[in-house]
Design a protein around this nucleic acid. Structure first.
Length: 419
DNA sequence: TCTGGGGTCCTAGGACCC
DNA sequence: TCTGGGGTCCTAGGACCC
């Protein structure tokens, strides 16, 4: 038996924990650069504002309803997520953190005779200990557990949990779910299914496995079996180490100068390198990409990317910045109005794997310098020490975060300063 | 004026090997 | 005149997730 725990409007809930006056008001959270709406309270949804709506299109209506809007505060959400997950671990020895706001847990044997009570205990304890409201879906497969939480959302059930164990109830449930809402079925597959006259999860579940396997792929066939209550996906406690790491952001305002572009590439590379070291990994190659604003139809469009391999796996800021700048030089085109750039570190391996550098081009001091920088930044706050090439704090390309809340749970010094 | 970011997995096709 | 069969590896692109 598997339970899926899903935090309700997670980012919104995090902000509300520290601003209780917002509990019954419309609250929206914006993407980087304060661009799109990426999380919505129920009140915002009720205003008809869709996920991903550009903020400028929804601003007026939110203001009219006296709603609150926040820039996304990933430090806060990340920390709140850790708290929720540690509460969940008190319920089961087997938990899989699926995303920042969701986890699958295996229901322990001795709790399987009473999933209702088990669910409501989870909901109560997580709320009491963290302030975050969650919903719980229980079933014998992951995909059906997902369907169960979907039903809680859709039907606005009195209970914040749903149990899908017996056959009749499963069939009833699947009738209410359009294929696009099935976990693992996206737009493309849903469109094809619709063309074949398949609209609900119940209709999909009746299909022949071989047909689905042929028409689509193994993943979709697996989803089918899971909906037929045949488990195909295990709870994955030890997620595989990450294979790529990407740090990319749109610019606050467009970049037209090579010097600004280098600043941002140095900054993004340093950030990516720091993340890599935090994950205790090294990269074997780096990709740099730059693009113009593709929403602007009148502008000349350009997108370039280049991947360079390191002589041996690295994670020092110095080495990564060096190669990223080399790659940038190869793709940069003058007279373009750039909107975005990004750094991808590829072919990641554990930093414990020692790979001798054949040509000994590494500078052994680089790693030590990076280590010291990490220590200083972790003690005194991100950005305390950085490369001069990263430019100043108010550089035009830096992302906009005009409505940022405080790091209530991770930076007490910051609170003391501002209060 | 203003439109996000970060991942994974699968597949088909090309290049190459014997 | 007639030109095989069986592999592996890599890459780009598509599809999906949050």
């Amino acid at each position: 038996m598997i339970a899926l725990i899903d935090c309700n409007n997670f980012y919104v809930s995090c902000e509300r924990v520290f601003a209780p006056s917002l509990r019954n008001k419309p609250v929206a959270i914006l993407s980087n650069n304060d661009g799109c709406i990426v999380a919505r309270s129920q009140e915002i949804k009720d205003l008809g504002i869709k996920m991903g709506t550009p903020y400028f299109k929804a601003k007026k209506i939110i203001e009219r309803h006296k709603g609150a809007v926040f820039s996304s505060n990933y430090e806060l959400y990340g920390d709140m997520s850790n708290r929720v997950m540690s509460v969940l671990r008190t319920f089961s020895g087997k938990t899989e953190i699926y995303s920042i706001d969701e986890a699958f847990i295996k229901v322990p044997e001795y709790r399987q005779n009473d999933p209702e009570n088990f669910s409501s205990e989870i909901i109560r304890k997580v709320y009491k200990w963290t302030g975050i409201p969650v919903k719980v879906g229980t079933a014998e497969t992951k995909t059906l557990a997902k369907i169960a939480t979907e039903l809680v959302k859709k039907d606005k059930l009195k209970q914040l949990y749903k149990i899908l164990l017996n056959k009749r109830e499963i069939t009833q449930a699947l009738k209410k779910i359009p294929v696009i809402d099935i976990w693992g079925i996206g737009k493309a597959t849903a469109d094809t299914l619709n063309e074949h006259g398949i609209f609900t999860a119940e209709q999909f579940t009746a299909l022949d496995e071989q047909f689905v396997r042929k028409k689509f792929n193994v993943m979709t066939a697996r989803t089918l079996k899971e909906l037929q209550n045949i488990p195909c996906m295990k709870i994955d406690e030890q997620p595989q180490p990450q294979k790529n790491l990407c740090y990319s952001k749109s610019f606050g305002s467009p970049v037209t100068e090579y010097s600004s572009m280098t600043e941002s590439v140095i900054n993004y590379s340093s950030n990516a390198a720091a993340k890599l070291r935090k994950n205790k990994q090294k990269a074997q190659s780096v990709t740099v990409f730059i693009t113009t604003n593709f929403f602007n139809k009148k502008q000349k469009q350009f997108a370039g990317s280049k991947t360079l391999s390191f002589p041996s796996a690295v994670n020092s800021t110095e080495a990564i910045v060096h190669y990223a700048l080399k790659a940038l030089k190869l793709i940069y085109k003058n007279n373009c109005c750039y909107k975005k750039c990004g750094i991808i570190l590829n072919e990641l391996i554990s930093e414990d794997i020692i790979q001798p550098d054949l040509f000994e081009t590494d500078n052994p001091n680089d790693e030590k310098i990076s280590e010291v920088m990490d220590k200083i930044n972790s003690k005194y706050g991100k950005g305390t020490i950085k490369l001069a090439g990263e430019g100043v704090n108010d550089a035009c390309w830096k992302m906009k975060r005009n409505m940022l809340s405080r790091n209530y749970t991770t930076r007490w010094d910051e609170l003391l300063e501002t209060d």
